[in-house]
């Protein structure tokens, strides 16, 4: 298990945050995803097998930009 912090740009409403959350949770291996609109950040708890690219793609799918993954 690992914790990943994703900085996201372009969110400006609550439904944006809930869309990203939904999309991240669909990635197989993701246990928990919580998106903070206020901090423009997603906190993801996932299996070690989940790659950075998969998570980035999940965010991009909903139409938002990833600025950094930690």
């Amino acid at each position: 298990m690992k914790k990943v912090k994703i900085l996201i740009e372009g969110m400006h409403c609550a439904s944006c945050a809930s869309n990203i959350e939904r999309s991240l949770k669909k990635v197989s291996g993701v246990k928990e995803a919580s998106v903070s609109l206020m901090l423009k950040k997603a906190m993801v708890e996932a299996e070690d097998t989940v790659t950075k690219e998969e998570l980035e793609k999940a965010v991009a799918r909903t139409g938002y930009r990833v600025t950094r993954v930690e």
Partner: peptide, 19 residues
């Protein structure tokens, strides 16, 4: 444009949002 683009993308991908 950002609102329009984000909104339309939301409509097409079924990730509906405020936009």
């Amino acid at each position: 444009w950002e609102t329009i683009r984000g909104g339309l993308r939301g409509l097409f991908t079924a990730y509906f949002n405020m936009d």
